[in-house]
């Protein structure tokens, strides 16, 4: 039996793909999405080796959480359902992992935080800031723990703006991105409220749904949590629409995330207005080569269209 391919080393280098998000230079627009690989300095480092332009760590809260029992991640034909349940070792431990990452890797690192109350977002931001991540992403939208934590904060523009202000105050000048849920009504307006409250970037989207898959033989939902967020190919059109709406309301950069496993997917998000391209489920759908393949495809597109960077494409789908 042949051994598995181990770590294709980051292959694609093209200076035309360099972008800047809130003043942070990225070697290419791809960003490892929160919740995929980023549990530790070393696991996030794997995404560096795979070619990501930046990495986002798993969302952390004040206390360690075990998350839901398994199955917690279930693939279906067009993506994944997940109800990991925000498992994380707590902000203090995550801060150590992020600091370790900063020492060992040259690629920008984004922390991701959540809280149970508005004030707690500030506390977690304060702890995580000590590790000096390049950016703090605020997860106001995870649908998995709704029952435990109440209605997601991110559905309410005023609350989201309040969280933005609290995190900005606590994060010692580190840029802050608010990660929005596609479930939010008027996602463009909410993004605008975040910008007005001081957000430096918007990440969109978190998972869609929740959804459910049922085993017809066992006649019960497969996820232990019964429902989970939908990601992957199925959500790409929703992500494209959300980014398009947000881009028409804000001037801050957008990390377009949701369903990207190929360059033409990334291109749609860029044409809708994204600067960064989040990739999570694509690692499962297209394999370990997803970051380099997306970048290669973007380079090819620039070649074919005689362009020397992504700027002219960004938001070009708007009238």
């Amino acid at each position: 039996m042949s051994r598995g391919t181990l770590l294709p080393k980051s292959g694609h280098h093209d200076r035309r793909l360099e972008v800047s998000i809130a003043g942070i230079p990225l070697r290419n627009p791809t960003v490892l999405a929160s919740g995929i690989l980023g549990m530790s300095a070393s696991s996030a480092g794997l995404a560096v080796a795979l070619g990501a332009g930046a990495v986002t760590f798993k969302s952390c809260g004040l206390e360690p959480r075990k998350g839901h029992p398994c199955p917690a991640v279930v693939p279906f034909e067009h993506g994944l359902l997940n109800a990991v349940g925000l498992s994380n070792p707590g902000a203090e431990q995550m801060a150590r992992e992020i600091a370790d990452f900063r020492q060992r890797f040259q690629i920008p690192v984004f922390a991701s935080i959540f809280g149970k109350t508005v004030a707690e977002f500030g506390q977690v931001a304060e702890i995580i800031s000590k590790a000096r991540p390049h950016l703090i992403e605020v997860n106001v939208s995870c649908p998995n723990v709704e029952s435990e934590l109440g209605t997601p904060f991110g559905l309410d523009g005023a609350v989201t703006a309040e969280i933005t202000r609290v995190v900005k105050r606590a994060s010692e000048g580190i840029p802050v991105a608010i990660k929005l849920s596609p479930q939010a009504h008027g996602i463009g307006r909410i993004a605008r409220a975040c910008q007005d409250a001081g957000a430096d970037a918007i990440t969109a989207i978190n998972t869609v749904g929740p959804g459910m898959v049922i085993d017809p033989v066992l006649r019960r939902p497969i996820l232990s949590n019964r429902v989970g967020g939908v990601s992957g190919g199925a959500v790409l059109p929703i992500a494209v629409r959300c980014v398009y709406e947000i881009a028409s309301q804000v001037t801050i950069p957008i990390i377009g995330t949701g369903g990207v496993s190929r360059a033409d997917h990334a291109l749609q998000l860029i044409l809708a207005g994204a600067t960064g391209i989040g990739i999570g489920t694509g690692l499962h759908e297209a394999g370990d080569g997803v970051f380099t393949d997306v970048c290669q495809g973007l380079s090819d597109y620039l070649d074919r269209n005689g362009l020397d960077n992504l700027d002219k494409l960004r938001g070009a789908a708007h009238d």
Partner: peptide, 17 residues
């Protein structure tokens, strides 16, 4: 947790395998 190389839970420190 996931068994499919996504969640990062079972990665070993050092190289992240």
């Amino acid at each position: 947790k996931c068994g499919i190389g996504l969640c990062g839970q079972c990665c070993m420190d050092g190289t992240g395998i």
